[in-house]
Amino acid sequence: MKFKAFLTENGVNLLEKRFLPALDKMGKVCHLYLTRDHTMFLHNLLNGDGIQSVAQFRKEALFDDYRISSQNEDRIAFAIDISLLQRAVRSSVSICTEFGSGPTHNRLQIKLVKKLPPNCTQPMPFLTFETKGYKSAVIQDVPISKPFSRAQVIELQTALDMAQDLPQTLVQVPDLNQLQNFVDRLKHVGDLLNVSISKYGDLLVQISTTLITVGAEFQKLLVIGEQADAPAEDRNLSAQTRSARAILRGDAQSVQVSVKHFAKSLQCHLAKPDCAFYGIAPQGACLTVIFQFFIPGSRQTDKSISLHCRLPVLDPGSS
């Protein structure tokens, strides 16, 4: 089992400034899953209850000179502490900028190693960052879990395949910051959030307890997938009534998720996506949020980067 690659400048930027801060909010530990073509950061795919997040990069998005081999179709997976990884990347960046005339000259190599730590009898696996400065090299070892066995990798791959189902209707959230601001305040009101998404492009998020109902509705959002025209007779009704009618008509779905999970999913804006879409998976299996990244300076999707989260549904709702 071997893995060795050089992080590109772009890769360092993507990880250090955008993805690691966002992924850190998803949970302390994630699975790093490396294949011949892709690098993936996976949260909660194997244990059921948390928010699942899948960040996937084509190897070119992050690395140069990418070499991977394993007896398991060149697939390697292990658990890693995001904050430690973030720290290693960050200090590597500072070493590069401190010593070099430019980061491109100071290549940052990352590889999988087994080392005997002090006071240990067993060698332990590490992800090692080797930064070559002007006259020095700095090596940082980030401890990782024992690499996954063949069965575990298959289990992870299966979970990943299952996490790829697309909602039939996706609506684009116009302003993630604003929604996050709102949801952060909602957290003080209750724990359970109802989310309804209609084919008309309506997104309704609402907390309902015995004492209070607070919600926000966004209308006429961009719809991807199945869409329909909002019936004219509904126009002057309240948000809740319209949503209820759309659900009855089969034009909308509603699920209940944890407010905390929803707030976490909004934290992904730290990864600086260009668009965000919310949708409800078939049969109300989960609430999915898909982030879209454009090729810098264009409106074209950057297919080398993808990020999506799946929020567990606490109540099947009215699906």
Partner: peptide, 14 residues
Amino acid sequence: SVDSLDACIYAEIR
């Protein structure tokens, strides 16, 4: 109302 967006926030307290 939130800007020109068709958005609203509503609440009902008992």
